[in-house]
């Protein structure tokens, strides 16, 4: 139906997450209609990102430079770290503009069913980094799921022997801002009750 290069473009776009055949067709036809300069810039940006972006050797954030911008920044508080499962979570934390410390990206959550254990995550690297740099507090910003909870417990157990005085905290869990109590699910409500605070 489509000429060969266009069909190939649609096929490639279809491989992207969340893009089905209709969206791929729409995107491909849109791209073809754009000026050549714009398409070149897009292709160049794709290639450059792929060739230069690497994991930061310290915190495992994505970065074109090693160490990453956050690890190099003198404005950051080196005594306060935030442990996240994924770079997307790091970005969510950064969007708050409240956190001024450093990060450590674990690269996922422990999931025996998917064959992900301690060795598949950056847990040993975190232990070595804590022993070396001796932060004062670690904040676990990890999604409150069964796998998230277990990952936190395991990391805590690994860190206790090397840093017995390290303060380890986790984000509060419970009801989201602007939500209505009557529509909250029982699991969330039970956890909110468990983590209630003094007025």
């Amino acid at each position: 139906m489509y000429t060969r290069p266009l069909a190939r473009l649609i096929e490639e776009l279809q491989r992207l997450p969340g893009i089905g055949s209709k969206t791929a067709q729409r995107l491909a036809l849109h791209l073809i209609n754009r000026p050549a300069g714009e398409i070149e810039a897009l292709a160049k940006a794709l290639l450059e990102a792929k060739q230069t972006v690497r994991h930061c050797s310290i915190c495992f954030n994505w970065s074109a430079e090693d160490p990453c911008e956050i690890c190099r920044s003198p404005q950051r508080d080196p005594s306060l770290w935030c442990v996240v499962a994924d770079v997307k979570d790091l970005m969510a934390m950064e969007r708050t503009r409240e956190f001024k410390g450093l990060y450590h990206v674990l690269g996922g959550l422990i999931s025996p069913m998917n064959g992900i254990g301690v060795d598949q995550l950056h847990i040993r690297e975190l232990v070595a980094r804590v022993a070396r740099e001796k932060p004062q507090e670690l904040i676990f910003a990890i999604s409150p799921s069964v796998e998230g909870e277990v990952t936190m417990h395991v990391v805590k157990d690994y860190l206790k022997p090397v840093a017995p005085t390290l303060r380890m905290t986790r984000l509060a869990f419970g009801l989201p801002m602007g939500s209505e109590l009557e529509y909250a699910d029982e699991v969330t409500l039970a956890r909110a009750l468990e983590a209630r605070q003094e007025l």
Partner: peptide, 9 residues
């Protein structure tokens, strides 16, 4: 917020 969220764990 999703009312299914925690229930689908």
């Amino acid at each position: 917020p999703s009312k299914l969220g925690g229930r689908m764990e």
